[in-house]
Protein backbone atom coordinates (compact mmCIF):
# COMPACT_ATOMS: atom_id res chain seq x y z
CA UNK A 1 0.00 0.00 0.00
CA UNK A 2 1.24 3.46 -0.78
CA UNK A 3 1.68 6.09 1.91
CA UNK A 4 -0.92 8.76 2.51
CA UNK A 5 -0.60 12.38 3.43
CA UNK A 6 -3.35 14.63 4.68
CA UNK A 7 -3.98 18.32 4.51
CA UNK A 8 -2.70 18.96 8.04
CA UNK A 9 0.64 17.41 7.22
CA UNK A 10 0.94 19.45 4.04
CA UNK A 11 0.15 22.57 6.06
CA UNK A 12 2.91 21.64 8.50
CA UNK A 13 5.36 21.21 5.64
CA UNK A 14 4.42 24.59 4.24
CA UNK A 15 4.89 26.22 7.67
CA UNK A 16 8.26 24.52 7.95
CA UNK A 17 9.23 25.90 4.55
CA UNK A 18 8.14 29.38 5.58
CA UNK A 19 10.16 29.22 8.78
CA UNK A 20 13.24 28.06 6.94
CA UNK A 21 12.55 30.37 3.99
CA UNK A 22 12.72 27.48 1.55
CA UNK A 23 11.36 27.92 -1.95
CA UNK A 24 11.34 24.29 -2.97
CA UNK A 25 10.77 21.03 -1.14
CA UNK A 26 10.51 17.43 -2.30
CA UNK A 27 9.66 14.35 -0.31
CA UNK A 28 9.33 10.74 -1.40
CA UNK A 29 8.08 7.94 0.87
CA UNK A 30 6.94 4.53 -0.31
CA UNK A 31 6.00 5.64 -3.79
CA UNK A 32 4.26 8.82 -2.62
CA UNK A 33 5.83 11.95 -3.98
CA UNK A 34 5.21 15.42 -2.61
CA UNK A 35 6.58 18.49 -4.33
CA UNK A 36 5.96 21.95 -2.91
CA UNK A 37 7.26 25.19 -4.31
CA UNK A 38 6.53 28.63 -2.97
CA UNK A 39 7.33 32.19 -3.91
CA UNK A 40 7.68 34.30 -0.79
CA UNK A 41 4.87 36.83 -0.75
CA UNK A 42 6.40 40.31 -1.13
CA UNK A 43 3.35 42.20 0.18
CA UNK A 44 0.53 41.47 2.59
CA UNK A 45 -2.72 40.65 0.79
CA UNK A 46 -4.80 43.68 -0.16
CA UNK A 47 -7.57 44.72 2.24
CA UNK A 48 -10.11 45.67 -0.42
CA UNK A 49 -12.47 42.96 -1.65
CA UNK A 50 -11.14 41.21 -4.73
CA UNK A 51 -12.66 42.13 -8.05
CA UNK A 52 -12.64 40.07 -11.25
CA UNK A 53 -9.11 40.27 -12.49
CA UNK A 54 -6.79 38.94 -15.11
CA UNK A 55 -5.35 35.57 -14.23
CA UNK A 56 -1.96 35.95 -12.70
CA UNK A 57 0.68 33.54 -11.70
CA UNK A 58 0.53 32.44 -8.11
CA UNK A 59 1.72 35.01 -5.67
CA UNK A 60 2.72 33.47 -2.42
CA UNK A 61 0.67 30.51 -3.52
CA UNK A 62 1.92 27.01 -2.91
CA UNK A 63 1.19 24.38 -5.48
CA UNK A 64 0.92 21.06 -3.78
CA UNK A 65 1.14 17.62 -5.33
CA UNK A 66 -0.01 14.88 -5.36
CA UNK A 67 -3.71 15.27 -6.00
CA UNK A 68 -4.78 12.36 -3.78
CA UNK A 69 -4.57 14.64 -0.77
CA UNK A 70 -7.79 16.47 -1.57
CA UNK A 71 -6.95 20.15 -1.39
CA UNK A 72 -9.61 22.43 -0.02
CA UNK A 73 -8.12 25.81 0.62
CA UNK A 74 -4.83 27.09 -0.72
CA UNK A 75 -2.67 29.69 1.00
CA UNK A 76 -4.37 32.36 -1.05
CA UNK A 77 -7.73 31.15 0.25
CA UNK A 78 -8.37 29.54 -3.09
CA UNK A 79 -11.11 26.94 -3.12
CA UNK A 80 -10.41 23.95 -5.30
CA UNK A 81 -13.15 22.05 -7.08
CA UNK A 82 -12.18 18.41 -7.59
CA UNK A 83 -13.71 15.72 -9.76
CA UNK A 84 -16.27 13.53 -7.95
CA UNK A 85 -15.70 10.70 -10.46
CA UNK A 86 -13.66 9.21 -13.26
CA UNK A 87 -14.88 10.48 -16.63
CA UNK A 88 -14.39 12.93 -19.46
CA UNK A 89 -14.22 16.64 -18.70
CA UNK A 90 -16.27 19.05 -20.84
CA UNK A 91 -16.14 22.81 -20.50
CA UNK A 92 -19.20 23.34 -22.71
CA UNK A 93 -22.64 21.66 -22.83
CA UNK A 94 -22.01 20.55 -26.43
CA UNK A 95 -19.30 21.04 -29.06
CA UNK A 96 -21.02 24.05 -30.66
CA UNK A 97 -21.63 26.00 -27.43
CA UNK A 98 -19.35 28.45 -25.70
CA UNK A 99 -17.68 27.34 -22.45
CA UNK A 100 -19.55 27.54 -19.14
CA UNK A 101 -16.72 29.58 -17.61
CA UNK A 102 -13.37 31.13 -18.44
CA UNK A 103 -10.48 32.15 -16.23
CA UNK A 104 -11.19 35.56 -14.70
CA UNK A 105 -14.98 35.13 -14.81
CA UNK A 106 -17.02 35.92 -11.73
CA UNK A 107 -18.66 32.70 -10.52
CA UNK A 108 -21.93 32.49 -8.61
CA UNK A 109 -22.92 29.87 -6.10
CA UNK A 110 -24.53 26.88 -7.88
CA UNK A 111 -23.29 28.06 -11.26
CA UNK A 112 -22.39 25.16 -13.58
CA UNK A 113 -18.64 25.05 -14.24
CA UNK A 114 -18.30 21.91 -16.36
CA UNK A 115 -19.77 18.55 -17.27
CA UNK A 116 -18.10 15.26 -16.47
CA UNK A 117 -19.38 12.37 -18.54
CA UNK A 118 -19.08 8.76 -17.43
CA UNK A 119 -21.16 5.91 -18.84
CA UNK A 120 -23.13 8.53 -20.80
CA UNK A 121 -24.17 9.99 -17.49
CA UNK A 122 -23.82 13.76 -17.80
CA UNK A 123 -22.81 15.28 -14.48
CA UNK A 124 -22.92 19.04 -14.13
CA UNK A 125 -20.42 20.26 -11.56
CA UNK A 126 -21.56 23.43 -9.82
CA UNK A 127 -19.61 25.90 -7.76
CA UNK A 128 -20.22 25.74 -4.02
CA UNK A 129 -19.21 29.33 -3.56
CA UNK A 130 -19.31 32.80 -5.06
CA UNK A 131 -16.01 34.13 -6.31
CA UNK A 132 -13.70 34.54 -9.25
CA UNK A 133 -12.42 31.69 -11.38
CA UNK A 134 -8.66 31.71 -10.96
CA UNK A 135 -7.60 28.61 -12.79
CA UNK A 136 -8.86 25.72 -14.93
CA UNK A 137 -6.64 22.67 -14.49
CA UNK A 138 -8.36 20.10 -16.71
CA UNK A 139 -8.48 20.08 -20.49
CA UNK A 140 -11.70 20.02 -22.50
CA UNK A 141 -12.57 16.55 -23.82
CA UNK A 142 -9.85 14.84 -21.79
CA UNK A 143 -10.18 12.18 -19.11
CA UNK A 144 -10.18 13.17 -15.44
CA UNK A 145 -9.62 11.00 -12.38
CA UNK A 146 -11.48 10.87 -9.09
CA UNK A 147 -10.29 13.69 -6.85
CA UNK A 148 -8.41 15.47 -9.63
CA UNK A 149 -8.26 19.25 -9.27
CA UNK A 150 -10.49 20.90 -11.88
CA UNK A 151 -10.81 24.56 -10.89
CA UNK A 152 -9.49 27.09 -8.41
CA UNK A 153 -11.91 29.75 -7.23
CA UNK A 154 -11.06 32.81 -5.21
CA UNK A 155 -13.95 33.38 -2.82
CA UNK A 156 -15.59 36.79 -2.72
CA UNK A 157 -15.66 37.15 1.04
Amino acid sequence: MSAKIDYKEIKKLVQFMEEKKLSHFELEIEGLKVKISRNPSPLPPPESPPVPQEPEESEGNESVEPQEAEPEKGKNNLIFITSPMVGTFYLAPDPSSSPFVEVGDPVEKNQTLCIIEAMKLMNEIESEIEGVLEEIYAENGKPVEYGQKLFAIKPLS
Binding site: I81, T82, P84, N110, T112, K120, L121, M122, N123, E124, I125, E126, S127, E128
Partner: peptide, 16 residues
Protein backbone atom coordinates in the same frame (compact mmCIF):
# COMPACT_ATOMS: atom_id res chain seq x y z
CA UNK B 1 -31.50 4.50 -24.93
CA UNK B 2 -30.76 5.86 -21.51
CA UNK B 3 -29.57 9.38 -20.81
CA UNK B 4 -28.93 10.23 -17.18
CA UNK B 5 -27.95 13.67 -15.99
CA UNK B 6 -27.02 14.95 -12.57
CA UNK B 7 -25.78 18.03 -10.78
CA UNK B 8 -23.07 18.16 -8.12
CA UNK B 9 -22.25 20.93 -5.73
CA UNK B 10 -18.59 20.24 -5.24
CA UNK B 11 -18.60 16.54 -4.37
CA UNK B 12 -22.19 16.37 -3.17
CA UNK B 13 -24.82 15.16 -5.64
CA UNK B 14 -27.84 17.48 -5.66
CA UNK B 15 -30.09 15.40 -7.87
CA UNK B 16 -30.05 12.97 -10.76
Amino acid sequence: GILCESAYSGNRVNYA
